[in-house]
């Protein structure tokens, strides 16, 4: 018998024991990010948020999605899940933000450095294929129960597309443009910021969209460690066999997903149409 589990357990315990101050610091930072986003979303009256999101949807996509946004968010409010939805949205946006903050630079590194690329790829495969529930255990050990371990698990699960699509986008920049840029004496910084990133932007934005959607798919799972929000509603429906409650929470998640997907997708499309 090979007890890999034992080793991993020992490793996690060792991390928990020796890096407690570090995890505490991370917890404070992440918690304040999630809480401030939630505060921003909960502070104005619900109709202000609905109008703002609908306006954004109209600006980016058009009438159809705007009407859907108005109707969908009003329905959520009507069902009485406004606070839960905003809590979920705050958790998703904060997690996606952190995932992008880590993922995009990693993606750049993987594109620029062949060795880094070779090392990062299997890690991404692991992060994406490992059942998401598995992340919950170390998350709880590191951060206890609540929003922070939820965000931790969500970040790990949603980061791979950001890394992958950033790398892909940079690799797809035409070689002749890179060569021309170098021939005019560009430093590697100038090459990256003035040419490669702008040209890779549509692909990177597709990665942003994917990251947000992956984060959304973690809603119910992270509710198992008391991350709260809509996930908790659905989870209650499952554990108490309340079909209606489960569906109400589920519908709210779907509405949120469609709005987020269409709006974030529009950024990628608009940019590529321009190029």
């Amino acid at each position: 018998m090979i007890h890999i589990g034992d080793y991993i357990e020992q490793f996690i315990n060792w991390l928990t024991l020796n890096f407690a101050p570090f995890f505490d610091a991370v917890k404070v930072v992440v918690e304040s990010i999630v809480n401030s986003v939630e505060w921003v979303l909960m502070f104005p009256p619900f109709y202000v948020i609905i109008i703002l999101v609908a306006f954004l949807a109209w600006k980016r996509t058009g009438w159809g999605i705007m009407l859907f946004t108005l109707a969908g968010l009003s329905l959520i409010w009507g069902m009485g899940y406004w606070a839960e939805t905003m809590a979920t949205l705050a958790l998703i946006l904060s997690s996606a933000f952190i995932a992008l903050l880590l993922g995009i630079p990693l993606g750049i590194w993987a594109a620029k450095n062949e060795l880094a690329g070779k090392m990062i790829r299997p890690m991404l495969d692991l992060m994406q294929t490992m059942p998401a529930f598995v992340y919950l255990i170390p998350a709880v050990l590191f951060f206890g129960l609540g929003k922070v371990p939820g965000a931790f698990a969500t970040v790990i699960f949603s980061m791979p597309p950001a890394v992958r699509l950033t790398t892909l986008g940079l690799r797809q920049v035409p070689k002749d443009i890179v060569e021309a840029t170098r021939s005019f004496g560009a430093s590697s910084r100038q090459l990256l910021f003035k040419v490669e990133l702008p040209l890779a932007l549509p692909t990177i934005l597709a990665g942003v969209n994917q990251t947000i959607m992956m984060a959304l798919s973690m809603v119910v799972i992270s509710a198992m460690i008391a991350a709260g929000g809509l996930g908790e509603v659905v989870l209650k429906g499952i554990t108490q066999l309340k079909i209606g409650l489960g569906f109400e929470g589920g519908i709210a998640v779907v509405i949120l997903a469609i709005i987020l997907d269409r709006i974030t997708q529009s950024f990628g499309l608009k940019t590529s149409a321009k190029a």
Partner: peptide
């Protein structure tokens, strides 16, 4: 490359 030699390419190499 910045001051003394500049290059023109077959496939232009312009920034779209």
């Amino acid at each position: 490359r910045r001051k003394e030699m500049a290059m023109v390419f077959q496939n232009f190499g312009l920034l779209p």
